[in-house]
Computed example of a mutant assay.
Amino acid sequence: MNATQIARYLARELSEDEAQTLLRWVEESPDNKRLFIQIKNAWSMASMDKVDATDVEYTRQRWQLVKRQLDQQTIRPLETTPWRWLRVAAAVLLVTGLAFLAYFNQNRLQPEISYQIVETPAGKRSRIVLPDQSVVWLNARSKLRYPTRFDSRKREVKLEGEAFFEVQSSPDKPFFVQTDRTTVRVTGTAFNVYAYPSESEQRVILVRGQVAVSHAGSRHFSILKPGFSATVRKTSDPIVIQAVDATEHTGWTTGKLEFKHLAFEDIARRLERTFNIHIIFSNPKYRQETFSGSFDENEPLEEILQVIQASSDFEYSIRKDTLLIR
């Protein structure tokens, strides 16, 4: 146990278990308790002095205040305390000083980080330039949350829905995309993430570069190569890696609706987001019928349905914002 841990405790940065461990250590010996009380008193008294927390000299000023309080606490005992306690007091002062200096250097107040949230409605897509100049295309009914500036260690964004990323290369500052079930780690690359929370599968499709994919919160990553996808289902299920046609999954960035041997219910979800319509299957047998096609998003919905209908026997009707497949 050291003075840095005590400083973190006083700053309320220890977990409950860490705090309990520290308090048990304090009770183990009079010396431990004396050190704890000495640092606590110095902390309390120094915090009452006025220090400009926005000044670059903040760390030095705060330590000088703590040192001054420790000096004041040790002046009186010097007259009567045995010489061995002089050495203890000097050691406490030195160790505490170094600990506080390191602690406040690491935790010097930074400008507060604010976040930007972009939400794209049905039938629309957005182009976003991140603080590091990476570019994100956000698909319909999707949401992206990102900081107005990235910290010095990593770049991280949170996604609900679908987005295509072109990430600026920075090997020393990895880029993370977080969804409710998936973590994608990259350094510089282009890839698509499909992660609508209401759907059972989330997919990452790599166009170029390299990415690592894992279940959210896991440290076990699967590496993707260009032209491959990673499908994430439940946390207990393994991540499925397979070869894909990337253009089929990224055509939406240029206004294309492309699908190859895709189930009608999956096509329906894409049509819902593109045309802002609710699709109901009154006859469930059509849900798993597969279709292939390539359409422009500006084509009328009924023309797309008529092309799909040419290879099936389903009927449909449209009433206001609802499409019924029967």
Rank of each mutant, 00 (worst) to 15 (best):
G227M: 02
S229A: 08
S236W: 09
F175E: 06
D237F: 10
H215S: 03
V213M: 09
D245N: 12
A230S: 10
P171L: 03
E199R: 12
S229Q: 09
V167Q: 02
Q210V: 11
H215W: 01
A230C: 04
A246G: 01
A216S: 14
S214W: 03
A216H: 12
E199D: 15
S198G: 08
F191L: 08
Y194L: 09
V211R: 00
P226D: 12
R155P: 03
P174L: 09
L159F: 06
G209W: 09
K234R: 15
S229Y: 01
T235R: 15
P171Y: 06
R219V: 11
A216F: 12
R203E: 07
V207Q: 11
G217N: 10
K158I: 09
G227C: 02
T182R: 03
N192Q: 05
T189H: 08
L159P: 00
L224S: 13
T187P: 03
R219L: 13
E166K: 10
T247G: 08
Q242T: 09
Q178Y: 05
F175Q: 06
A195L: 07
E156D: 07
Q202I: 01
R185Q: 11
S218F: 04
L206P: 06
A190E: 14
T235K: 15
A212S: 15
I205N: 06
E162C: 05
G209P: 04
T187S: 11
R233L: 07
T231E: 12
F221I: 10
T247L: 11
T179V: 08
K225L: 11
V207R: 07
D237T: 12
T231Y: 04
D172C: 05
Q242G: 04
T182G: 02
D180Y: 00
V157N: 02
R208K: 14
E156Q: 13
V186I: 06
E162L: 01
V193I: 14
A230N: 02
A212Q: 14
G209M: 08
I205V: 15
P174I: 10
E156R: 07
G217C: 07
E156T: 11
S218H: 07
V204R: 05
Y196K: 00
Q178S: 11
F175Y: 08
D245W: 03
G161R: 00
S218M: 05
V177C: 06
R208L: 08
E201Y: 07
S169N: 15
I239Y: 12
P238A: 12
F176Y: 15
R181T: 08
Y194H: 12
G188C: 01
D172K: 15
S236P: 04
R233F: 07
V184L: 05
E160K: 08
G188W: 01
E162F: 00
T183E: 14
A243K: 14
T231I: 12
T183G: 05
R155I: 06
Q178M: 07
P171M: 07
Y196P: 00
A216V: 13
S200H: 13
D245C: 04
P197Y: 10
K158F: 14
T231K: 09
G161L: 05
